[in-house]
Design a binder for these strands. Structure first.
Lengths: 132, 132, 132, 132
DNA sequence: GTGGTCTAGACCACA
DNA sequence: GTGGTCTAGACCACC
């Protein structure tokens, strides 16, 4: 399992693990049903405390990203979001809001923000509607 | 100055203030040069400790969003990020990456994500996806 | 970690700590990746309130000098200013301007100022002035 | 008297005035014996409180930059530093130390720092001794 | 153990 | 009046 932890980051270790796994799942690197490294193994690989890995896995389970099967280990869940559409849309709005506002304060224009998102999504920006 | 704080949120109070001010500045609700509520006033309005507001304002100043002047008050700064283009692009990428991955785990498809972003930016998608 | 604080100085305690750490890093006394004294330890050593040390460390992190990691401690960051060249040059100019003007009012001549700077940088002036 | 005050700066107004006058004196714009604008006039020009200008002038007088003559106004002093050589050298060292350390954290190399100082002093850098 | 947040209250400096 | 510093002490989150 490919997970890079940056000790130079001030993000908590367990959050880096959570996000790393979510990224791997989103990119297809980890497929649904696939088994994750055991808590013990991953802790050894990353040279960190097993409790930290366990906390990350617990968080991933509570988010519906992985499922734990007693004695068998942790597996990537089939579908992740157990939330209502209302809650999902609310969270998406918050994520977008956060992106837009922080990008504004980095002096990026709306078209630049749009371009960055489309590039990441492997879609193509049309130049129409580039008003602001 | 309109700011709503949720004491129940897991987000620290001072971060809620920081983000609230950044949102107000990004939306134009607070214009460059405009004066913010004083530390004491805002603390009174929100029914929290003045030190917490002061911490939020200090953070906003270190991010270049406002300037604080002893005896005068706090004012919205003129916009212009002091960061290098390399750093700005790096941070934008991280923001986009975060959005895309979290949205994926909320079971949103790339077109849905794109639509949500474009809607927030008041731009129009050439190939309209499901709107949030 | 060697840090001397002058409670009698008009400089705030937390700024003295900030500058002391920056000096230690610049001199190589503290190497990149090295761990700083904990907030509580340093506060005990200096006989000041832990909050004051915490404030200094927060300032150092916002300046990119150190990183703070919950539960782990504070570490000297890898060097690399995130600022644009324009901003870096602007700040350098201001620092030099300040030096030159203050030194002038201390009745030092330009050659004397030059000599003092070169001596500090361990370089040698081609046309040696009066050394400080 | 040419003094530009930046309300966008977080430096106290009175310090901006102090530094502005010292800069004007250092550059020769204000010659020794020359009369400064009255407290009242300068306050009107800058559209600030006379108390603030008075505080700046008091600071300049205590530093030996200007002298007040009762009823006649304030004049640029003949020579500024009433300090002992020991104190003068100590202060110069501190100024240089500050420059070098802050410049280091802006990722400037010693030769770059030297070049910036020499350029400001209208001296010429020889390329010998450019080791670090 | 580490750092992080928040409160409460005193006192100082600037305009 | 404004913001800035410092103290004291409680409680939480991370490792």
């Amino acid at each position: 399992m490919f997970l890079r932890i940056q000790p130079s980051s001030s993000d908590p270790l367990f959050e880096q693990i959570v996000f790393g796994v979510k990224r791997a799942v989103a990119s297809g690197e980890l497929a649904a049903g696939e088994r994750l490294d055991s808590v013990r193994d991953l802790a050894k690989q990353l040279a960190i405390n097993p409790n930290t890995v366990a906390k990350a896995y617990a968080e991933l389970e509570s988010q519906g990203v992985i499922v734990r099967r007693q004695g068998a280990g942790c597996f990537v869940a089939e579908r992740s979001s157990p939330l209502s559409d209302r809650e999902r849309n609310k969270r998406l709005s918050q994520l977008v809001e956060r992106l837009v506002i922080e990008a504004f304060h980095l002096d990026f224009s709306p078209p630049e923000i749009r371009a960055a998102v489309l590039a990441r999504l492997d879609l193509h920006a049309s130049d129409q509607g580039t008003s602001p």
